[in-house]
Design a protein around this nucleic acid. Structure first.
Lengths: 270, 270
DNA sequence: GCTGGACCCTCCCCCGGGGGGAGCGTGCAC
DNA sequence: GTGCACGCTCCCCCCGGGGGAGGGTCCAGC
């Protein structure tokens, strides 16, 4: 140690609380390069001034930020850009927390011993032309996407003839990515920005109403699924949701009502 | 479909919102066995009554419960045992959330442009005999372990001569598992349950005080590490923390004071 | 100067919880 | 009878490391 604070990997490990293995991996990944590497022996040498960087990396990894994103953050010297990138990840954590809350609520309902009976209605829906926003989205981006889409719809649809609704491709749930469409019925669907007219096909829907938070809506999906199969029907096409009463109407989640409609067709016994 | 709701893997996938791939994997793992498998073709067939189970699994996986634990939960028919196992995992989620909060706080401090100067004192500490509880613990169990240990110490140490403190092996931070010791100084260390007398060796400590929540204590660790190296010292042995003012004393986190001491020895220039 | 032990190196395989895709067999509707 | 959606297995890939083998290096004590 030349007094100036040159450290072996072991010393640096003790001071940064990162394992030796992990430090080597970060070197390989180009994430945290040692201040110098001995050509002859391959020994890595770190500088004391790298401890803060190591700590930032450590904290980001504790927040499950992928190494590639960590790299972008620590590479960007500009504190502004840094702050933005970090803020992005904190937002991602927020939405993940939201998802976790939903899963917990849903789990509680699932584990309740006596599920209340489910009202399901079979309803023929004619083809309708509506104002819509549609995109290919990832499952965990849906909430953010929804917020943007509904705002855009609200801005350009001035004479809605019904509550908003959405169509969600099955792949969205099964593969974590798929097509999503949010619409608002109106007599004269405008075309503006992402909003454009779409004609929803006529379908026969098995419809039920989910009451309460969206977090545990999957439970209702499951119950509806059981009903559908139990009544000798099969699923055809994307799920439809209709936001009869939602957060836009009242802050009380227990009053929210979401209609879930699954397009079905009758199957004969096999 | 014999009217009774026998489903192919694809149908079951649509109804359960689990991907076909994932269903096959759950079969292989013995987690969700199809109701029947065709010997000739290998086709899996699921029953409608398996949808609720699939949903429970789905929710648990969203909470990052490992498949092996999910298996234990869904296998245990007894709702009581189920509820207990699930509650355990919810507690784990809680503590993870705590850790996340800590990392966020720590990150904010790290990204602040101007770190306040650090007061470090070099202090020779004589050997002391104290009442202690010690264990090998995992890094993410430390909080829970601490709670139990401090309660046990409080229960049997009636005449403490100082505030509590802890010794934490470096491996705990670097490898995620290591030795932890919580102590309370007293004239006559009792022996009761996990509490027993321990003689802490004499060391020279580089000591600084961390003010505020424990969540961002790693930042102070890093600053202390930099100081240690910058002063031509090297680290020897487990970190010592002394809980001068903590949650047991006041509910206001900004008043908490934790002394961090790192055993050091002087190294000559290399 | 030698030796032992702590420390360092690279390399390969392992984990969980899937995804992508190849290559091939099946069931059903037209 | 034929197309094609759906089913099957098998293998390799992803991330962020951990375990351990096999071997080189540094340094203190003798």
């Amino acid at each position: 140690m030349h007094g100036g604070g040159v450290l072996t990997i072991g010393e640096f490990s003790r001071l940064s609380h990162l394992s030796v293995r992990t430090l080597r991996r970060y070197h390989d990944a180009g994430l945290l390069e040692p201040a110098s590497v001995d050509d002859a022996t391959g020994y890595r040498h770190y500088g004391v001034d790298q401890i803060p960087t190591a700590q930032v990396i450590h904290r980001l990894r504790e927040l499950d930020v992928p190494l590639s994103d960590v790299q972008r953050i620590v590479r960007s010297g500009d504190p502004e850009i840094r702050a933005t990138l970090v803020a992005d990840h904190l937002r991602r954590l927020e939405s993940e927390l939201e998802r976790t809350r939903g899963a917990v609520a849903s789990l509680r309902r699932l584990l309740e011993p006596e599920p209340p009976p489910l009202d399901v209605e079979l309803r023929a829906v004619p083809a309708t032309t509506v104002a819509a926003v549609e995109d290919d989205v990832a499952y965990d981006e849906v909430l953010a996407w929804y917020a943007g889409a509904i705002a855009e719809l609200d801005a350009v649809v001035h004479d809605p003839t019904g509550v908003p609704g959405g169509l969600y491709d099955n792949a969205l749930f099964e593969d974590g990515r798929g097509h999503a469409l949010l619409y608002r019925p109106t007599a004269h669907p405008p075309r503006s920005g992402r909003v454009h007219p779409v004609t929803l096909p006529a379908v026969e829907l098995a419809v039920t109403t989910h009451v309460g938070e969206h977090g545990d809506i999957e439970v209702t999906y499951g119950e509806l699924g059981t009903w559908v199969v139990g009544n000798a029907l099969a699923v055809a096409g994307p799920v439809r949701e209709t936001y009869v009463v939602g957060p836009r109407d009242t802050a009380d989640p227990s009053a929210w009502r979401t209609e879930i409609g699954w397009p079905v067709f009758r199957v004969g016994p096999r």
